[in-house]
Amino acid sequence: MSDLRITEAFLYMDYLCFRALCCKGPPPARPEYDLVCIGLTGSGKTSLLSELCSESPENVVSTTGFSIKAVPFQNAVLNVKELGGADNIRKYWSRYYQGSQGVIFVLDSASSEDDLETARNELHSALQHPQLCTLPFLILANHQDKPAARSVQEIKKYFELEPLARGKRWILQPCSLDDVDTLKDSFSQLINLLEEKDHEAVRM
């Protein structure tokens, strides 16, 4: 008798599972884009990406090597390959550029003059790299909540973005962990650029 009841239970579960499959069907897949995220150590790359993934931005340690996070948005999933920003890791960045469809560059708006110059040099190198030079760039001026943070205008001028990146598709946005909505809006703009690229590819 108990064996029969167990069998009935399993049959019922199969029925429920089958019904779930019939009713739902697979949801339409959101497009996926592969991005690379670079910037000096301490600029906030891991914290920002963790926040977007609904993971804890606390206890963030410096990234060694790389990590890949799947960051879900309403209309796309971004597979972000985050590379460590320490001196001894930056020289390996280019080994991870292949296959990227976009670039996220994170800088610390409140950093020292020396670090800001280093960040500018790294951004210039990335903008000119053969595997990245045709891709859209999202440049995040992070730590805008700090008193010493430079404004977006100051950063744009100092980084010489207007002359240097003319003809390229780039977005420069202020951000901080305090303002998640602005952060998400920045990424939505990047997704728009990526979608434009997709449409162009389809047209060709």
């Binding site: 592969d34 990590s67 890949i68 996070k69 799947a70 597979n79 991870y96 292949q98």
Partner: peptide
């Protein structure tokens, strides 16, 4: 989801090289 990202993205990245 995290294992999926590790296998299909992170490991695949190195295997591509």
């Amino acid at each position: 989801s995290s294992i999926n990202t590790l296998v299909t993205k992170t490991m695949e990245d190195t295997l591509m090289t």
